[in-house]
């Protein structure tokens, strides 16, 4: 465990807590893509299949349970909570994420570290995480306004990805056997997606500011 990875896990946890807090405090999920949240729940469920078979460390097991529970809690709130579900932008959140799930699964059947049930689903979860933010980015572009909590949510997710890339660079130089190409390449693609979002987000913010100032 190195400081970059720990900081990455913490910013990832913070991003999920921001979302839970926003939904709990405002009893609203306006501007949040349910499809992205479902994809993240699927990412955690398929990645942590080894929760009961491989014990890495207490920290590792606790965090896996926290991620699975919190992502399912968000999906449950957005689908079942009587107050929250009313504010869901159903007609804006129209990204056809089932195709993304299928594409990632096919890719995992082709590209994986070992052809075992657990490894194929692990690779699937890595690919899916890279594109899980797409419905949320589409929703933000459609709804036009990026309210600051959702903006912060994506900001912390971007920070988590960036810190993980530094973690991989650090591990590459400090450990001899470190070679995790699937996670690294997929993580780079995911981070590129976030970079694109930040470019768009801040560009539109600047445009809004200049319009306000004019």
């Amino acid at each position: 465990m190195n400081i970059f990875r720990f900081a990455g896990d913490m910013t990832h946890l913070i991003s999920i807590l921001i979302l839970l807090l926003k939904i709990y405090a405002t009893k609203s999920c306006a501007g949040i893509s349910l499809k992205t949240q479902e994809l993240y729940a699927l990412v955690f469920l398929t990645r942590y299949l080894d929760l009961f078979t491989d014990y890495v460390s207490l920290y590792n097991s606790v965090m896996k349970i926290v991620f699975i529970a919190s992502s399912l809690a968000i999906v449950w709130c957005m689908r079942r909570h009587p107050l929250v579900r009313r504010s869901y932008d159903k007609d804006l959140d129209t990204f056809r994420h089932q195709y993304v799930v299928l594409a990632c699964f096919v890719l995992a059947l082709v590209l994986h570290e070992r052809f075992t049930f657990q490894e194929v689903f692990w690779a699937f979860s890595i690919y899916l995480e890279a594109v899980a933010i797409l419905p949320q980015l589409v929703l933000l572009q459609r709804s036009g306004n990026v309210d600051n909590l959702t903006g912060q949510y994506v900001l912390f997710l971007g920070a988590y990805r960036g810190l993980y890339i530094i973690n991989w660079i650090y591990r590459y130089f400090t450990e001899d056997h470190f070679a995790r190409w699937i996670a690294c390449v997929s993580g780079l693609i995911q981070t590129a997606l976030y970079a694109d979002f930040f470019y768009y987000y801040y560009l539109s913010r600047i445009k809004q500011d200049t319009i306000m100032r004019l």
Binding site: H12, D54, V56, S57, K64, R180
Partner: peptide
């Protein structure tokens, strides 16, 4: 201590 499991990252 962390066993070097196949995937020790979250």
């Amino acid at each position: 201590s962390e066993k070097d499991a196949a995937h020790d990252e979250l």
